[in-house]
Design a protein around this nucleic acid. Structure first.
Lengths: 154, 154
DNA sequence: AGGCTATAGTTCTAAAATAGAACTGTCAAA
DNA sequence: TTTGACAGTTCTATTTTAGAACTATAGCCT
């Protein structure tokens, strides 16, 4: 597999996997959503090697998930802020958290609880159909080729 | 990082990442949801090395995502079927597909379209609050420690 | 019987990625 | 002038992955 061109495959999952499809990147993004912004913050909470952290942050900046924003002029220091593109990864992270809560839990209960500020309640994320609003299940979905696939396949 | 115990961390994201947090596993799951079930099927559509495919399938079986079901007695042959635990990964996959559609698209248009059999329409997946039904956004969610975190941290 | 094909793996070596630790450079405060 | 905080970079050893070849069972064709 040519991982370096995975983001150009005629498959939206592949393209997403090209960006967030590794363990460290997903854990870094978790920290971003928990308001971590700085190199040392990521490093100490994740115990990731500084080398890899540096690499992954660069990659996330390159793909437009994070912005590298100066917060000190002398010495020059930067922090990493989620862009809108990055914020839009939230459903992926939440879907993963929810699956972990449901299927990988232990007797200690949930590690984190999520409260929806809008309605005030503790909630679970639910994926629904944009058209009818019903919860989605794999077996109720029919997949067919769109223009991007037809053009790629010929 | 001790990846071998990542599935026991007091963090549901880590636990999920332990299972599906690598590129091949996510691509294999995509194929599962596209009804691929057999070793040769995965191998030829993904161009994954046979060695790694074998490893990843074993891991998915070990974690209860796939079941290895015989479909021929002589010679003994097996196919890999999503369990309920595996089917429940659907929101993760769909969230990734949707993000790719939204942020990684090109001029050729979407590779795949999804039709909701229940309502008959082509749809996008939307993540909503289980309590009030409103679409979720990161900034409207307050995270706090649950019992599993408190017990782990002390 | 002998050879071809299909399927589902296993085994081997080379290349790439990751881990772990040490090092660099800037500046502020003591 | 020394220490410490911060944001990285560089180095070697280990682990993972890629790529190709090999094994094994059995049906089908001649």
């Amino acid at each position: 597999m040519k991982w370096d061109t995975l983001d150009e495959e005629p498959c939206s999952l592949s393209r997403t996997v090209a960006v967030v499809g590794d363990r460290w990147t997903l854990l870094i993004l978790r920290e971003c959503f928990l308001r971590v912004r700085r190199f040392e913050g990521f490093q100490s909470s994740l115990q990731i090697t500084r080398h890899l952290l540096s690499e992954r942050l660069k990659k996330l900046v390159r793909f437009g998930i994070l912005r590298r924003v100066p917060y000190s002029e002398a010495p020059k220091r930067y922090e990493y802020i989620l862009t809108q593109k990055g914020l839009d990864l939230y459903p992926i992270i939440m879907a993963m958290v929810h699956w972990g809560d449901t299927h990988m839990g232990d007797e200690r209960g949930r590690p984190l609880l999520h409260q929806h500020k809008t309605c005030g309640k503790e909630f679970d994320p639910v994926m629904v159909c944009s058209e009818c609003g019903e919860p989605l299940h794999a077996k109720q979905v029919h997949v067919h080729a769109g223009p991007g696939r037809k053009e790629a396949v010929g």
